[in-house]
Structure formats: C-alpha cells, structure tokens
Write a protein that binds this DNA or RNA. Structure first.
Length: 502
RNA sequence: GGUCCUGUGGCCGAGUGGCUAGGCAGAGCUCUGCAAAAGCUUCCACAGCGGUUCGAAUCCGCUCGGGACCUCCA
C-alpha cells in the first residue's frame, strides 16, 4: 500500500515519493508567540503531528521542523507599521522577549497536553536573523529585490515574468496589482509609494525609532519581513528542495506564495514537493480568529471557563474531535459536538482496554469465517484509509465497527472461537498502534493511581460480599458514594467489577 | 468586485455514480436485585429546480444559502 497526499500546489492527490528515499523533510508554520493559542491553532499542530507519526509508522526517517515566530510581524504598510510583539509588550509593560517566552511556554504546554510529539527542530525567527539577511542579499544580487529607504522589497512583477507566481493560491498577478492600486487610493499612500509595485512584498523593513525589536543590517536597523523567516529556516534545515510544507489554508496567500518566490530565486528550484493545508475550525459557521472576536483559547477549553462551554474538555477529547473530521474539511465547533466526542472517545477507549485483555490460543480456524473476514478487513483498512490522504475519520469509523465485536467477545456473546487467534492478535496489535502511536491518543482517567487501586480493590471486595448476602443497602451505598466522588463502577457479566474515574 | 470552497438526518461528521459510513442524542428490547456499562433493533438525510445516465448525495447547469482568501491570521 502506498501513501497518497493531496498536494495543494497541483490540487491533486499524488503518490508520496520522498525526495531522498527513506527520509522525509517536513516544515510546518508554527505559532506567532504574541498571544495565547486558541482552538483554531490546535488543528494544524494535531494534523501534522498525525502526519509526522504516520510517516514514522511507514518506517520513514522524518526531520520535522516547526518554527516559532518570535520576531513579530508588522502590519500591512498603509497602516501603522508596528511590530505586533513589541506593541503588545508595551501595553503589558513587559520586555518583548519576556512576552515571547511566556507565550512560547504556554504553547509548549498545550502541545504536551495534546500529546503532540516535539518537532525535530524548533527554530526561532530571532535566532536566524543572519540567515535571513544573507538570503535577502542573495535575492538582491540576483536582481529580484530592491532597497528603498532602508527597506527591501521583492520584485513580484519581475519574478512573475518567468515564474508561476500565484499558482499555489490560485491568484492572477494582474488582479493583485489592480486590487492593490484600488486599495492604495482609499488607504494610506505613504508605505505604498515606497514599493515599485503594489504586489511587491517586504523582505526587510526599516525600523521606526519606537520599534523595540531591531537588528543591524546592510540597509540599516530594521527587522525581517513577513515571509523570509520560513524560507531561510526551511532552507537551512531541510535544504533547497524538501518533501512536505504544511500550514493552515489561510497561509496560502500571501505567506506560502511568497515563500515559493523567495526560495525559488535563491535556490534555483521550487522549495516544496508536497504542499499540505489544513482547513479551519469554525464557530457558528465562521472561522475562529482574532479578527472575528470568536476565539476559544486552549486554556479556556481545558478549564471550561468560557461562556460557550458547559464544562471543561480534556485535551484528548479535543484531539479526538479533530480526528473525527478530515483535515481538509472545515470543522464546526460546538459544545454539543465536543460532548459527543467526549462520550465517543470514552467508549472507544474502554473497548480498547477490553481488547488488550482478550486472548486466545491455538485457534487456527475461525468458527465464524464471515466475522473473521470482516474483522480482518476492518483492521486492514486502517492503513488503506490513512494512505488515502490521512483519512482519520474513516479509521475511527472502523474502530467503532470493531468496538461491539470486542465487547461481545469479552461478554461471551460472541464465542472466542469464532475468530482465529491470528485475527485476534492482529486486531490487538493494529488497534493499539493506530490508536496510541499513530493517532497519539491516550488514557484520560486515573485508573493508574497506585494508591487508589488497592483501596478500590478492598471496597469492591466488600461490595461483592454484601451483594452475595443480598445486602443491597451496603452494596448500593458503596456504589452511590463512589459515584458521588466521581468514580464510576460497572458490574461485568463475568461477575467482576471494573471502575474508572470520571 | 475578483478567485476558490461549500450546503448530508435533532447535533457533529464520512462519502471514490449502483451495496444503510461512523459518533452523539431519541425510541424499544436483552442482560441486571436495581442501576451503570454492554449487546441487539429502530426512527430521522442528502438546499431547490432542471439535465446527463439503466441508475446521482456523488457528474453538468441554474437558483438560493453559508464560508475562505484577496490585510497579520492555523
């Protein structure tokens, strides 16, 4: 089976063939640490964590680079050219780097909560000013950028004469120029007049006196432009041409389009073989974003401290919620949807716990060939579905098909002999690999508490004795009190009792 | 205004022209001292109108609705 990836650049599903056999270079646009991450931010990081994990499952060696944008991007010229990071810092009376540290820490905390594997390299923009400057110099030398008043701009028109500018984002240069010209009339004229053409974008920006974050450059003191950091760092760590570049769909233009232009000029080759873009998380049908004022921060998500939330949601619930839809579809947030995911995930995980305890020996021939085939088929499809552009929702659907079978095997509703030992073992192995290793899901309750376990064993033992004596007052008292404490107990068909927190 | 995406049952969501995705919620049943859990069964769909086709949620056209990008944005 071979992995196919939907390539945003060609708008087709393509067979994935690494540039260097056995190795994969993957770059994902990381967070701008000028504020707290919200639910929308969770999507790309969970999505590409799955990609990272799955590529490794496929026995590929992956170098996963995800940057931290800590230099702060200025806003569009025509408005105030202020550095977002330093602006906020002044408001909060913090050093810019103090702010950067705070939000970087918060971001890392959230990633850990989501059980996202750390990237191989997590470079910062401020740590690569030198690389960015030399890349800009290179572009100037090659004649595709020009300096004006200490700022450097990329010459889009010149680039577009011989390259496909706009292909990734489906844009036509003439439209951009027209739109730009129209804008410049109604907007500010100052910043615009510096550029030779409205479609040009900044590589380096001269810093006004009040700008705190500034670096020396051949063009005077300033700070890097919007897009150059990703190009510089991707090139440095992954080379001129690498496999996968990921990010949110909203980065297609201008960010990724510009990255392609810059890198192509510097490296004489298109930087990326497969462009991957995740879709947005919406809330009431609208993209979650600062400008819409409809964000739910991750801290609010995990604490339930938000008007739209009826309760706290565990990071694994959110992760599962994200995996239940395909990464290229919009995903509509709602409290009810999260509640549904919470229950669904719990049920699935409990089935998995049950599955781990099942065993059979020496049953070579299944008594129910049809069922045995079905199980094998569902299990085989895990990989087939993932190979088809990471269809996590389909894999989950199959897991839910398997859940009743697993539970029935345990309860004896389906005799163990109905499926072969091989089938059972394969089911156990694959279910675990996909649920834990590929999907990165993990247990959410506290059954592993070393202190609690013997206490629970004792209580359940007493309750069992009471039940045998038909002393239901005592047995119900234990059960009800435990329920009140948040511990749910379940009487199993085989006479045993299981329990769980939450 | 330009470019593109999208409209699936109470909610969230898969859907490659023909075979009920799945989850949550609802209803019934089985099991159970009672519950919970589990199992089984079941209700509720493909925005509208045309067209192509033996056959369309799936392809085409139109209408209506929603959204994204064109500005930092996951």
């Amino acid at each position: 089976m071979a992995l196919h990836i939907y390539n945003s650049y060609t708008r087709n599903k393509e067979l994935f063939e690494p540039v260097t056999p056995g190795h994969v270079g993957m770059y994902v646009c990381g967070p701008t640490v000028s504020g707290e991450s919200h639910l929308g931010h969770a999507r790309p990081y969970v999505t590409f964590d799955i990609v990272f994990r799955y590529l490794q499952f496929k026995n590929l060696k992956v170098r996963y680079v995800r940057n931290i944008t800590d230099a702060g991007h200025f806003e569009e010229e025509g408005r105030e050219a202020e550095d977002k990071v330093s602006k906020k810092a002044q408001l909060e009376r913090l050093e810019p780097m103090e702010l950067v540290q705070k939000y970087t820490n918060l971001f890392h905390w959230a990633m850990k909560e989501f059980n996202c594997i750390e990237p191989s390299i997590e470079p910062t923009a401020t740590g690569h000013i030198v690389e960015q400057i030399s890349m800009i110099e290179d572009i100037i030398t090659k004649g595709y950028a020009y300096e004006v008043n200490g700022s450097v701009y990329f010459d889009v028109k010149k680039y577009a004469a011989h390259h496909d500018y706009g292909k990734l984002s489906g844009r036509i240069l003439e439209d951009l120029i027209e739109a730009g010209n129209r804008e410049s009339v109604s907007r500010d004229l100052e910043g615009q007049s510096e550029k030779r053409d409205s479609a040009d974008f900044a590589l380096w920006k001269a810093a006004p006196p009040e700008h705190i974050m500034r670096w020396k450059s051949p063009w005077g003191e300033g700070f890097p432009g919007w897009h150059i950091e990703c190009s510089a760092m991707a090139t440095k760590y992954l080379g001129a041409h690498f496999d996968i570049h990921g990010g949110g769909m909203d980065l297609l233009f201008p960010h990724h389009e510009s990255e392609i232009a810059q890198s192509t000029i510097c490296n004489h080759t298109a930087p990326v073989k497969y462009w991957m873009h995740n879709n947005m998380i919406t809330i009431n049908g609208r993209k979650m974003g600062k400008s819409y004022n409809n964000v739910i921060k991750l801290t609010e998500m995990f604490s339930g401290n938000h008007p739209l939330l009826t309760q706290a949601f565990h990071p694994m619930t959110v992760r599962f919620f994200i995996l239940q839809s395909h990464y290229r579809s919009t995903l509509d947030f709602g409290n009810d949807a999260l509640l549904a995911s919470e229950k669904a995930f719990k049920r699935l995980w409990e089935a998995y716990e049950v599955l781990k305890k099942l065993s059979s020996e020496g049953n070579d021939i299944p008594s129910d060939k049809e069922l045995d085939d079905k199980v094998n088929n569902w299990v085989n499809e895990f990989e087939i579905f993932m190979d088809d552009d990471f269809s996590t929702p389909k894999v989950i659907a199959n897991m839910f098909e398997l859940a009743p079978v697993i539970n029935s095997l345990k309860d004896g509703i389906i005799p163990m002999k109905n499926i072969s030992t091989n089938t059972l073992n394969r089911l156990k192995e694959r279910f675990g690999v996909f649920l834990e290793d590929v999907f990165g899901l993990k247990n959410t309750d506290g059954n592993n508490n070393e202190v609690l376990k013997p206490v629970m064993d004792l209580l359940l033992d007493i309750r069992k004795e009471a039940k045998l004596k038909k002393d239901f007052v005592t047995s119900d008292k234990i059960r009800n009190q435990l329920t009140a404490m948040g511990i749910v107990i379940k009487d199993e068909k085989d006479g045993g009792t299981s329990w769980g927190v939450g």
